[in-house]
């Protein structure tokens, strides 16, 4: 992840991710679990919500940074490398690709195809889709998509494997619920297609 700029100073590059969802769907939990996973793998990471009163159903944003070197930035993520959309209806009310880098990626929970999404919203960056609600309903019996999206995220970006998320998931969900969420992660990891 290292690059050199004109001055010859090595600047470690950093992955910046923005999560979009609705209150109660786990956008904040997604960012937190991914940060804890990355930290557990020896990396540096930070996760934080877009702070404010928490209301179930309201559009929410969460931020995540992952880096190989210590992160010394506490501003919000304005130019993400990746945008993760946990709820497709958020795209109708929020410009989810705002500030997304030209070579960035949208990872979207939808049953529609990349082409349908691109035509409808005019996204110009790469898109990866997954029908996370279907997997969540089958594995968790509730339409909460955060761990499914993390499976897709980990696959597409090569950030983590099932083994890496075991501890954070177990710590967060405990016992039987952790097993279900690990299964959801695994299915998403296996079923996620490439990037369009």
């Amino acid at each position: 992840m290292a690059s050199q700029d004109a001055s010859g100073i090595t600047i470690m590059s950093m992955l910046e991710i923005r999560f979009h969802g609705r209150g109660g769907q786990g956008a904040v939990t997604s960012a937190e679990l991914m940060a804890q996973t990355a930290i557990g793998m020896g990396k540096y990471a930070q996760a934080f919500p877009s702070f404010g009163p928490e209301r179930r159903g309201a559009p929410v944003t969460a931020f995540l940074r992952i880096s190989d070197s210590p992160i010394r930035i506490r501003e919000k993520v304005y130019e993400p490398n990746v945008v993760v959309v946990l709820d497709p209806t958020v795209m109708n009310v929020t410009k989810v690709d705002q500030g997304l880098k030209p070579d960035g990626l949208l990872l979207i929970n939808t049953h529609q195809s990349e082409e349908q999404i691109r035509n409808r919203y005019g996204f110009t960056q790469k898109i990866s889709t997954i029908d996370a609600v279907k997997i969540a309903l089958e594995e968790l019996k509730v339409p909460i998509t955060n761990t499914v999206m993390l499976g897709a995220f980990s696959k597409v970006l090569g950030q983590a494997t099932l083994k890496d998320v075991e501890e954070p998931f177990t710590h967060r969900f405990g016992g039987a619920l952790a097993v279900k969420n690990l299964a959801a992660f695994k299915r998403a990891y296996e079923e996620t297609k490439g990037v369009a």
Binding site: A31, E32, A35, I39, A45, Q46, F48, F51, R74
Partner: peptide
Amino acid sequence: GFTLSHFIEP
């Protein structure tokens, strides 16, 4: 507040 209190970090 938030900028530290609500950050998850190593």
